[in-house]
Amino acid sequence: MLAQSVFLILAVVALSSGVMVITRRNPVHSVIWLIVTLFSVGGIFLLQYAQFLFAVQIILYVGGIMVLYLFVIMLIRVETVAKQAPYSRQWAIGLGAVLVLACELMYGVYKGVESFHLGTPSRPPVDMNNTEAVAGVLYNNYMLPVEIASLLLLVAMVGAVLMAKKRFE
């Protein structure tokens, strides 16, 4: 009961602040609302006893990436960007995407949960906590994909640095 009401509150906060993100004119305000969204999603993770995911959500997204967002926004000229409103022309495409997504969701709701083949959530062993379970899965079962993904990110990072360096030289 308690868990459900907490979930409802978090979900409503996440959705409504998500709406705020895309409706704010000032990009800094958008970022603040995005932080609120990420926080509530983190709360939902916590509600599912996924403490590790919660912590990573906060550390990476809220503590790291959003700070960089703010950093970039402060370096550019907010006033000129606000005047140009570069995305307002694409509202038709956006509307189409929203319609498709809404249809999909409605179809899903109409069919009900039972019609989908969902995997049964695996419970971690009792003597292990959530973090150890995640670590075990990532570094034992899926070692290669993790390494490939990290390599990809490294390449992206080095590429970005190179591009920035070339521009300033």
Binding site: V28, I32, I35, Q51, F52, F54, A55, V56, I58, I59, V62, G63, G64, V67, L70, F71, M74, N129, N130, T131
Partner: peptide, 25 residues
């Protein structure tokens, strides 16, 4: 005694930076 106490510490203490950035901005 959170079992991810250390992650919690890192996570929450990294939030303090918002006070600084937003205040300055």
């Amino acid at each position: 005694d959170l079992n991810v106490g250390l992650l919690f510490v890192v996570a929450v203490s990294s939030l303090g930076i918002y006070g600084i950035i937003l205040g300055g901005w």
